[in-house]
Lab assay of single mutants.
Amino acid sequence: SISSRVKSKRIQLGLNQAELAQKVGTTQQSIEQLENGKTKRPRFLPELASALGVSVDWLLN
């Protein structure tokens, strides 16, 4: 799922939720909701993929 991929990649990069949120241009709460499965397809998906160094396709599939 996107939530597990985001969380595992974030941890692999040594980032906390607030640091990832800053790179993406969103809030820590938005990252938390995404990782908890409350958000399925965030509006900041391209920025998120870029910050994590992955493709949008990788996040979604």
Rank of each mutant, 00 (worst) to 15 (best):
V24F: 02
T39D: 13
R5K: 12
S4V: 11
A49G: 05
Q29D: 15
L45D: 01
S55N: 10
S30K: 13
I31N: 00
S1L: 10
V6A: 08
V54A: 04
N61W: 09
P42Q: 05
S50I: 15
R5V: 07
K7W: 01
Q22M: 11
G14C: 08
E32N: 10
Q22Y: 10
P42C: 12
K23H: 08
K38W: 10
G37V: 03
L20I: 06
L20D: 03
V24S: 07
R41K: 13
Q12D: 12
E32H: 10
V6H: 00
Q29E: 15
G14F: 03
T26D: 04
N16H: 07
L52N: 00
Q33W: 14
S3V: 05
L34F: 08
L15T: 03
R41T: 14
Q28C: 10
K38R: 12
L59E: 02
L59H: 00
A51D: 02
Q28H: 10
V24E: 01
L45Y: 05
L45C: 04
Q22W: 08
R5A: 08
Q12A: 13
A18N: 11
S8N: 12
S4H: 13
S30T: 10
E35Q: 02
R41Y: 15
Q28P: 13
I2R: 03
L52D: 00
Q29K: 14
L52G: 00
S3W: 03
N16D: 12
R41V: 14
L48K: 00
K38N: 15
A51L: 09
Q29R: 13
K7I: 13
G37F: 04
Q12K: 08
L48P: 00
N61P: 08
G14I: 02
L13W: 02
S50R: 12
R10N: 02
S4W: 07
F44G: 04
L15R: 03
S3D: 07
S8M: 11
N36A: 15
K23I: 15
L52W: 00
Q28I: 15
L60P: 02
E32D: 11
S50D: 13
K40T: 15
K23G: 05
N36L: 12
K40P: 15
V6Y: 01
P46R: 13
R43L: 15
I31K: 11
G14P: 02
L48W: 02
V56S: 07
E32Q: 11
L52K: 00
K23R: 12
P42M: 09
I11W: 05
S8G: 10
A51Q: 07
K9G: 05
V24N: 01
N36P: 01
V56F: 08
L13S: 06
I11E: 14
L60R: 09
K40N: 13
N36G: 10
G25E: 04
Q29M: 12
R10Y: 01
K38M: 15
A21D: 01
L13P: 01
P42S: 07
Q17E: 11
S3L: 02
Q12S: 15
R5I: 09
V24M: 06
K38E: 15
T26M: 08
T26E: 07
E35C: 03
Q28E: 13
T27N: 10
L15G: 02
L20E: 03
Q29L: 13
E32R: 11
L20P: 02
L60S: 09
P46A: 14
I2H: 04
R10P: 02
L45M: 09
S1N: 13
K23D: 04
T26N: 04
G14T: 03
D57H: 09
L34W: 03
E47N: 09
F44A: 04
N61V: 08
L48V: 06
K38D: 15
P46Q: 13
Q12E: 15
A49K: 01
L48T: 02
L48F: 02
W58S: 04
L15W: 13
T39P: 09
V24G: 02
F44E: 05
Q22G: 10
P46D: 13
G14E: 07
Q22E: 14
G25D: 05
I2C: 09
D57R: 08
G14M: 05
K7H: 07
E35W: 00
T26W: 05
T39N: 13
Q28A: 13
K7G: 04
I31Y: 02
I2M: 11
S1W: 09
L45H: 01
A21H: 02
Q12F: 09
A51S: 07
V6W: 00
Q33T: 07
